[in-house]
Design a binder for these strands. Structure first.
Length: 491
RNA sequence: CGGGGUGUGGCGCAGUUGGCUAGCGCACUUGCAUGGGGUGCAAGGGGUCGGAAGUUCGAGUCUUCUCACCCCGACCA
């Protein structure tokens, strides 16, 4: 078999890049740091969107759309927020071009300078809160539960396809509530949705937790995240949910009259997941042959490949396949029948493996004779012959089994790569040799966190939720600590 | 912004101390055979060698300038 990808062992980063390109998910564009998401990659993103969107709607959220441009003055209204984002904003300063005097191309028309520059949104809190101000007068207007699907721009110094690009796609939820408790409840509700989505759809186990002050969203009181472990032992923050307190309400003067006729600032949340999830999905399950997709997010769940010599054979196969195809569709399974004569079966096998199609069904003359089909599953690469009758049920079960199996595998990987370190030396050794999640005691100070980061490159991914308190001593300073936190090297 | 590297058909690359018609693999086109794991053979199409200036009888190759991209760090979802 021709080798198409760099192996993970050889060079993990290169493997990832190769895979994204060769599986036709995305490519670098002529704009530095920005990617073109290709049809196959976009189809997966659309599936993710559809599922998440329905989860948001089931919990009472509505979609809306706010502008791409944000007046510069808005950004500076919340002090922490501007500090966090100012360094990576693209700015629109002019609104017109003109032909150059020498006739060679066009240039910015300096006379068309904007009175106030516009920022291309790195996130939409400011424009949204500026708008909400007019929407909210009374407790009867609350809660306000809005989500938007959008693109944002953050001028990053270094980019990687899906994991960090200058422009990326995401959803951002922005909600307003009467009380602190209600806003916190919303923050947690969304965090749970993200975790549930990761687990049940992406087949990716995640750890939920709160971020330390250093890692907190600019302008938030508390940031919660889901953290996933990639196959190279590095962590990937895969979604965040923020409790914003009254920070933005105060900055944009968003108030409401409560039931007792008293004016109060609203309580806010914001939360998001991005096309970075694509990177997580790729790195969670894929192997040296290519992408491995969880059936529930695979644009094509079953591909059918005919094997034939003569056209009469193909005609026969076409007929058989048509009945199979109909049965599968009736079961709600997405099927592609690839009977192109321009590519050989072997080529197609390799190609669909590269693209991560969970199940491949091959039908050849031998199968026609025996009334059988060959099924190959992408996750284990196992091949087996089955009778053609009742194949739809077998495939349905198989898709289920694959979904469960890749989750089990990912969970097992996470478990095997989660360690407890009781001394700083032990900690350093684990970071250096195996990577993974490391549970350790920390004294709760930014200084210690930064020291550890500087010395080991590992950061605190989160302070895990739902963990029993286990008093101990900080591995660096020896000061008391009430529970272990999760460290890892991160993307 | 520092350090390193690369620019030669669509992609990946070779091209020696300057030398004559710029080459190889993949991909592409056509034909024939083939078809249960990236098919074989044959014939073909496609290149201002990143750009500009210079040295020279002659530049992909040497000099100067310039542009772009990639990788490694500091910033971040």
């Amino acid at each position: 078999m021709a080798k198409v990808l760099t192996s993970r062992e050889e060079n993990y980063a290169q493997w990832y890049n190769d895979l994204v390109i060769k599986a036709d998910l995305a490519e670098n564009s002529s704009v530095r740091g920005c990617m073109v998401i290709k049809p196959h990659g976009y189809a997966i993103w659309e599936k993710m969107q559809a599922v998440l969107d329905s989860m948001f709607k089931e919990t009472g959220h509505s979609n809306a759309y706010f502008p791409l441009f944000i007046p510069k003055s808005f950004l500076s209204k919340e002090a922490d927020h501007v500090e966090g984002f100012a360094k990576e904003c693209a700015v629109v300063t002019h609104y017109r071009l003109k032909n150059r005097a020498d006739g060679k191309g066009i240039e910015v028309d300096e006379t068309a300078k904007l009175e106030e520059e516009l920022i291309i949104r790195p996130t939409s809190e400011t424009i949204i809160w500026n708008t909400y101000k007019n929407w909210i007068q009374s407790y009867r207007d609350l809660p306000l539960l809005i989500n938007q699907w959008a693109n944002v721009v953050r001028w990053e110094m270094r980019t990687r396809l899906f994991l960090r690009t200058t422009e990326f796609l995401w959803q951002e939820g922005h909600t307003a509530h009467e009380t602190r408790e209600e806003a916190i409840e919303e923050t947690m509700k969304i965090l749970n949705i993200y975790a549930e989505f990761a687990k049940s759809w992406m087949a990716m186990p995640v750890i939920q937790g709160t971020k330390t002050e250093n890692e907190r969203f600019a302008g938030a009181i508390e940031t919660y995240s889901i953290e996933a472990l990639m196959q190279d032992g590095k962590a990937l923050q895969s979604g965040t949910s923020h409790f914003l307190g009254q920070n933005f309400a105060k900055a944009f003067d968003v108030t409401f009259l409560n039931k007792h006729g008293k004016l109060e600032h609203v309580w806010a949340t914001s939360w998001g997941v991005s096309t970075r999830l694509m990177g997580a999905l790729i790195m969670a399950h894929s192997d040296d042959r290519g992408l491995v997709l969880p059936p529930k997010l695979a644009p094509i769940q079953v591909v059918i490949v005919p094997i034939y010599k003569k056209t009469e054979e193909l005609t026969q196969i076409n007929e058989k396949v048509e009945t199979i195809r109909k049965k599968l569709i009736a079961e709600g399974i997405s099927v592609k029948y690839d009977n192109r004569d321009t590519h050989k079966p072997g080529w197609k096998f390799a190609d669909y493996e590269l693209k991560g199609v969970p199940v491949r069904l091959a039908v050849g003359p031998r199968d026609i004779e025996n009334n059988s089909v060959e099924l190959a599953r992408r996750d284990t690469l196992e091949k087996k012959i089955y009778p053609m009758d009742g194949i739809e049920q077998i495939i349905k079960d198989l898709l289920h089994e694959i979904q469960n199996n890749i989750y089990r595998k990912a969970l097992d990987f996470q478990t095997r790569n989660t360690f407890a370190a009781d001394s700083y030396d032990e900690f350093k050794e684990i970071v250096k040799t195996s990577g993974g999640f490391i549970l350790a005691h920390w004294d709760g100070t930014s200084e210690t966190e930064e020291k550890i980061n500087k010395e080991t490159k590992a950061t605190i991914r989160c302070i895990p939720l739902n963990q029993q308190s286990e008093p101990g001593k900080c591995m660096v300073t020896g000061k008391p600590s009430s529970q272990r936190v999760i460290f890892a090297k991160a993307y």
